[in-house]
Simulated assay, not measured.
Amino acid sequence: MPSIYDYTVQTANKESLSLENYKNHLMLIVNTASKCGFAPQFEGLENLYKKYKDDDFIVFGFPCGQFQHQEYDDIKKTTEYCQLNYGVTFPMFAKIDVNGPSTEPLFAYLKEEQPGLLNGKIKWNFTKFLIDRQGNVVKRYAPRTTPESIEQDIKDLLY
């Protein structure tokens, strides 16, 4: 049976990163889009990251252009946009697909663990998955769910 720690993802700098490096961390994994109406959530995600990173909490942003092409094709533009407009310092990764035949394997796993209301499909940008310190995918949040509204769930799992 696979675990979140079995997955390797590609960073924005095209380096491979094993999620095994984040054992015993609380993770929030989000499919993002810079040109989406939900992009202001970057600020809330960054605030959560800054507030709890010293407690081994991490946010991972995975840019995706599958929903009305709301992400830049150039990952450098994506990371610059996020840093300049929202002060993002949490890790951003290579642009991925979250649905369809080219789905990033990590997101296939996340959707299998927390299928949501659309039988495993991701509805839109800023779908969020919360992973506990043991690597369990414990909760899935809809795109409209703000980072601020999930802070209590994060605190409950951290402390």
Rank of each mutant, 00 (worst) to 15 (best):
V9I: 13
D6A: 06
K77H: 06
Y86T: 13
V98F: 01
Q114L: 10
Y7M: 00
Y49V: 07
D56G: 07
V88W: 09
K128C: 07
L45N: 03
E148G: 12
F60I: 04
T79N: 04
S34Y: 10
Q83P: 02
D97S: 15
L84N: 10
M92P: 05
D73P: 05
D153N: 04
A12C: 08
N119T: 13
A39Q: 06
K139P: 01
N31L: 02
K139A: 04
D55N: 09
G100R: 12
S102M: 10
D153S: 00
I131H: 02
Q66P: 08
K23D: 01
K76W: 07
D54Y: 12
N136W: 03
T146S: 07
K53Y: 12
Q134F: 07
F107S: 02
L110V: 09
L48A: 04
K50Q: 11
Q68S: 15
G135R: 00
R133P: 07
L45I: 10
D55Y: 08
P40L: 07
L106K: 02
F38D: 01
G120L: 04
A94V: 13
F42P: 09
V98H: 03
V137L: 00
V88I: 12
F129Y: 08
G61H: 11
E151N: 07
K35F: 15
L110A: 08
S3P: 12
F67K: 01
